[in-house]
Amino acid sequence: MLTALEVVTVVSVGLMVGVEFAVAFVINPILNALPDDSYQLGRAHGGRMLGAVMPFWYIGSVVLSAIWAATGWHHHGTGLVVTGAALLLVSVVMSVLLLVPINNRSKTWTPENRPADWREQSARWDRYHYARVAVLIAAFTLLVTALV
């Protein structure tokens, strides 16, 4: 049973890291190359779509990692799992404090109602997101390392 939990956790976190990496280094650069209206509308749509799914995925990853740490407490690699879970929790805190407030504003913007500093707010979100992706990659690396 522990092996199944380990695999489900690693796959779930790995997929989440892949999505967030793609947003940072594929999707947003593509959108950034579009004209302002298309760029902003694409980001708003992405913010609504991913903003609806990611909270469950982030919290679920923390919960799965915590269950893995608790059920495998006396197994090899538990310290790595605990540290990985802690980093996932850090990513949730980063999201709530730094990224979600910007996302909640930007997902409602249209070309007609966006603020004058919308590009700066998008760039700030991107910087925070790069840091969050680094934290997620570190967490994922620790969880994978705990398997071996």
Rank of each mutant, 00 (worst) to 15 (best):
L2C: 00
L87V: 03
A69D: 04
D36P: 15
H74R: 14
V19M: 10
V13M: 04
P111M: 08
P101S: 10
T78C: 06
G79F: 11
S38K: 13
P111C: 07
L64R: 02
T9S: 14
R124A: 09
L80S: 08
T141M: 10
D126P: 00
S38C: 09
G60F: 07
P101G: 09
N104Q: 15
W125Y: 12
A86D: 03
Q40R: 14
L34P: 03
A123Y: 06
V26Y: 11
N32F: 11
E112A: 14
V148P: 02
P115L: 04
H76L: 06
T110F: 01
D36V: 15
A44V: 03
G47Q: 10
P55K: 08
V135K: 04
E20R: 00
A139T: 08
L98K: 14
R48D: 08
V10K: 03
L136K: 09
T145C: 05
F25L: 12
S12D: 03
G51F: 09
V93E: 13
A134M: 13
M49F: 14
I59E: 00
G60K: 06
T83M: 13
W57C: 00
N104G: 12
I102R: 12
P35Y: 09
G60W: 04
Y130A: 13
L50D: 07
G79L: 13
V63P: 01
V10M: 02
L5K: 02
E112K: 08
I27M: 15
A69W: 07
G60E: 07
A70W: 09
N28M: 15
